[in-house]
Design a protein around this nucleic acid. Sequence first.
DNA 1: GACCAGGCACATC
DNA 2: GATGTGCATGGT
Length: 215
Amino acid sequence: MKNAFYAIFDRLYSFFGPQHWWPADSPFEVTVGAILTQNTNWSNVEKAINNLKKRNLLSADKLHRLSKERLASLIVPVGYYNIKAKRLKEFLGFLLKGYQGNIKKMSLMDTLLLRQQLLAVNGIGPETADSILLYALNKPIFVVDAYTKRILLRHRLIKENDDYVQIQNLFMQNLKPEVKLFNEYHALLVRLGKEICLKNRTKCDVCPLNSLKNN
DNA sequence: GACCAGGCACATC
DNA sequence: GATGTGCATGGT
């Protein structure tokens, strides 16, 4: 008998199918996107990333050499562009200094140690760190976001004041640590949040999870 | 025009 | 330690 976390996953996967996350051409692009997408719509991030791509600037060296002001001007569509230019620069400094600008070198590190290092970078919090670990470096770390919390609350699997790590542990203790599973699961929760919860508000009758226990 | 988005750091009490 | 606030564009 599978637990509730697998039951939710199965429902979502049957309903939506594979989500093909993270939409990016390289691990470096994933990390840039992870920082730029903070509290922002993904379509805005695509515009900013395209601004960088079409100028052939999407590399650690090139972005690091840009002035903060120039970088900010290229990422305007993401909103919070000044603070995100600063955050991106903080991360690039960390990547260049610690790993010679090489994402693959980063992925050789112990996962939890690397997570601590990422969290120590100003501008990288738990969700951004975990997105980088899972989607750029293929580490089996579960990503928790606002949708995840909202959906779990709705199904009474967490309490209102449960924090990030508590929610993350709930997934990681109830699921096998498989990168593919964690990847698809978080993407599916975001898809559900965007497409059903947000658009239909209280009309949960169209939710693919609506006949599961505890909802 | 209001509300929200694939957050985070910092100030203040 | 909890609670509040600034950061800002673009879609619905």
